[in-house]
Structure formats: structure tokens, C-alpha cells
Nucleic acid binder design. Structure first.
Lengths: 143, 143
DNA sequence: TATTGTTATACTCTATAACTATA
DNA sequence: TATAGTTATAGAGTATAACAATA
């Protein structure tokens, strides 16, 4: 029998974060998934496959998601010059600005929602997340 | 300028939990949302509206989700005897068994995924989540 | 042959608006 | 009149299978 206290905690934090993504996405006229995609988009110009792994969804979904965000002028495709099969995702200037505002709003909302925790508790949470992912790729190998 | 360390931590934990829900749901032939719904279903026999708030989605979505899970013999509707407008959700015997296995697998997966954290860190995480939600309803008032 | 991204398909999730039945 | 749940609709997310281009 496994202890469920940790699982409950993780489920709680998941619901809180999901609610914030949904709320903020709505503020910007984005779906939850679009808000997430934009929030995790780094300047590394991830490939479609890498993005799928990060988002925990199938590669086939990424095509459509990027299509829609590209149509809105937020993202653009870019062929990898070394491996021409690979498509990399970059943000347009407009996309960059939106992403910055999105991240700012997410950080604000988290700070607000977690304001009943002390600064020490904030640090602990950050440290826990860092310890969790240090040196590991996300465990999304679901095929 | 808001600190982004906490936001990053919350985003990380969110992705980890979402990946586990998706992975486990798939094991049981359920979508991520169905797995979540079943995991948060308490013996309180929540109303459809309460369920929508817990899941952070619109009430109109719950009807279809329950429809599909009812069709699979996992859940059932039950009229509230005091307020006949209200529908309450209950698990069938088969549903109860699945939910128990689902929760067990989720707890196992969390324990496994978080195994690089110490027992003290597990306790801290649980305490943080408790402190976060103590005496508060989830902040899903998005209408 | 294997991999990357795409397309087609079918199903599910999502929110908005309009409806019903209860209160 | 207000609320709980439903339905219809349209759009978006999701996985599976089959495909083209590239390696």
C-alpha cells in the first residue's frame, strides 16, 4: 500500500496550476494548451518532436497547434539547415511580446495564489522542483 | 518585476502531474480528463456544478463527460431528493474498483517519479499543498 | 530502413448560447 | 426571477494509421 499524501499534494498543485493556465489563457484569448505551449517555448528553437515531448502529447497534435498559432502571427516554422526533415519553432516579434506578458501574468498569478505560503515555503517549492528535474528529461516516453 | 522561480517550479510540477495523468489514463483506456475526473471523485456524491468547479471546466462539459463514463458502466446519475434540479454523480461498483486502482497507480507513479526526493521533501510538499488549500475553495471562478 | 513532420479520420474536450425543469 | 442541468454548435485537442521527404 502506497502512501497517498504525496499523490494528493501533487494532484492539488496540478489542479491549481491548470486553473491558472486556463484563467490566464482566457485573458489573452488563448486555450489552456496554447498558453502552456507559449509558456514552455524557449529560445532553443525546439523541434516539433521536442515540443511534443515537453507538452506530453503526440507529435501529430503539434502540427495543428503550431498551424493555428502561426496563423495568428505568433509563431513561425524554420527548417533545420543540418537535418532538413526537422522543423523548428520560433516566435515572431509579436509572439515574443505576448510570451513575455504571458509569463509575467503566470508568475504574478502564482505569487498571488501562493501568497499564503511564506517566502521560505516558496523557496522550498522551487528547490523541490529543481531537485525533481535535475539532470533528467521529462518522463513523457509514452509510446 | 515578479520572481519567476516559484512560477517555474509550479509549471514543472504541473507538467509532471499532467504527464502522469495522461500515462495512467492511457493504461486504463481513459483520456487524461476522465482519469482526473475519476481521481477527484469523492464519496460526497458531488453535483455536476461542483464537479465542474473542481475540474476547472464549464458545467456544460461535465454532462458529456459523465455521459461517456456512464455509458461505460463506471458512473451513474442520481437525483438529489431535496432539490430535484440537482444531479449527483456516483460510481458504480465497477467504477469504484477502477477508481481505487487508478488512485493506487497514480500514487505509485508519483512515488516513483518523485523518488529522487527524500522522505522529508515528500512531507514538505504535502505540507505545502495542505497549507495552500486550507480553508479555501479552489480559485476556479472564471465566469 | 528509420525518422520528421504531415494529413486524414474519429473521438473527446471546451465554451457560448438557448432551452427545460425545478426552485 | 434565478439556478441546475441539458442540448446544439463550433472550434480545439487527442491518438492512430498511412503518407512524403529526408537521412
Amino acid at each position: 500500500m502506497t502512501s497517498h499524501a504525496l499523490a494528493t499534494a501533487v494532484a492539488t498543485l496540478h489542479r491549481e496550476a491548470a486553473a491558472l493556465y486556463a484563467l490566464i489563457g482566457r485573458e489573452f484569448g488563448l486555450t489552456t494548451q496554447q498558453a502552456q505551449l507559449l509558456c514552455v517555448l524557449t529560445s532553443d528553437r525546439p523541434s516539433f518532436s521536442e515540443l511534443a515531448i515537453t507538452l506530453g502529447c503526440d507529435r501529430t497534435n503539434v502540427t495543428g497547434m503550431i498551424d493555428r498559432l502561426e496563423k495568428r502571427g505568433l509563431l513561425a516554422r524554420e527548417r533545420d539547415s543540418e537535418d532538413r526533415r526537422v522543423n523548428r519553432v520560433t516566435a515572431t516579434q509579436e509572439g515574443e511580446q505576448l510570451i513575455a506578458r504571458l509569463r509575467e501574468r503566470f508568475a504574478e498569478s502564482v505569487a498571488d495564489r501562493f501568497s499564503r505560503l511564506t517566502p521560505e515555503e516558496h523557496d522550498r517549492l522551487a528547490a523541490l522542483a529543481t531537485a525533481l528535474t535535475q539532470g533528467t528529461a521529462p518522463s513523457f516516453n509514452h509510446h
